[in-house]
């Protein structure tokens, strides 16, 4: 564990010393939040839209922005830099458990995810969005967002380890956009057309989004929350296992 934490600290220093890589993860999700609310806010007035539970449309859109913020995966691009620069081989030539090399970066990503999600939610609070589930719900939704960012960067690290290419890794990150739009992004799942509803039901991102949304709009809807955490737990375990397998077979 100590080696994992030492490598995690190193990844955090790396992130702190590259603010230019962190700023877009805050700015772009905010941009999407403003644009989406600007485009559809009038269609769904708070007073006459039951699925908003009395809040504005921004509260409904906030989960999309949080998940987008957790899906930049800059840690995977830093990993490609390590591979290209030879530092990754330096680590591999050390008696460090391969799991520590993977988990160090993922732990750092979860810390970054916590900070970014907290920043976004605090900004949302300033603009009148409230968290219906209260402070405990706030903590849970931040934690869920951070865990999602770990899952997604785990996926991007797989691409990084497999391709060893920054371009391929960056392109793989774009896979989040179809996943984001095949969710109940603009309206609840039951209001989607049948094909979109089926696609959203099959898409794991839907359950994370619905869990986060329930915490913002409603009180604790445990079925939703547990489903969201279940998805990140399963996907997280799969990503870690695949990362470790790839790094052990890395030649």
């Amino acid at each position: 564990m100590r080696q994992t934490w030492v490598l995690g600290q190193r990844a955090l220093r790396e992130a702190a010393r590259t603010p230019e890589a962190l700023l877009p993860t805050l700015f772009i999700p905010l941009f999407f939040l403003v644009v989406n609310v600007g485009q559809a806010g009038k269609i769904f007035p708070a007073a006459h839209t039951s699925f908003l539970h009395g809040q504005g449309y921004g509260a409904f859109q906030l989960p999309s922005s949080l998940l987008l913020a957790g899906s930049f995966g800059t840690a995977a691009l830093f990993l490609v830099e390590d591979i290209e620069g030879g530092y990754f081989d330096k680590l591999r030539a050390s008696p460090v458990p391969r799991t520590a090399i993977v988990l160090g970066r993922l732990i750092a990503e979860s810390v970054k995810g916590l900070v970014i999600a907290t920043g976004l939610v605090v900004l949302a609070l300033v603009f009148g969005i409230s968290i219906a589930s209260g402070p405990a719900g706030f903590v849970i939704l931040i934690a869920l967002t951070a865990l999602w960012s770990v899952v997604f960067v785990g996926f991007m690290q797989l691409i990084a380890l497999k391709t060893r290419s920054a371009a391929a890794t960056q392109s793989a990150g774009l896979v989040f956009f179809p996943l984001l739009f095949l969710t109940p992004n603009f309206v609840p799942r039951h209001m989607l057309t049948r094909p979109m509803e089926i696609a959203a039901t099959l898409n794991p991102v839907t359950y994370v989004m619905e869990a986060v949304r329930s915490l913002i709009l409603q009180d604790f809807v445990w079925t939703s929350i547990l489903r969201g955490f279940g998805v990140v737990a399963v996907l997280g375990a799969v990503m870690i296992a695949l990362n470790v397998r790839l790094i052990q077979r890395y030649d």
Partner: peptide
């Protein structure tokens, strides 16, 4: 190795301390 395998965002001291911790 051939390409000095260093992390450019760390200081020299941080790199050596980290390496020691890994051992």
């Amino acid at each position: 190795l051939q390409e000095a395998g260093l992390d450019p965002r760390q200081t020299g001291r941080e790199l050596l301390v980290l390496q020691g911790r890994l051992f």
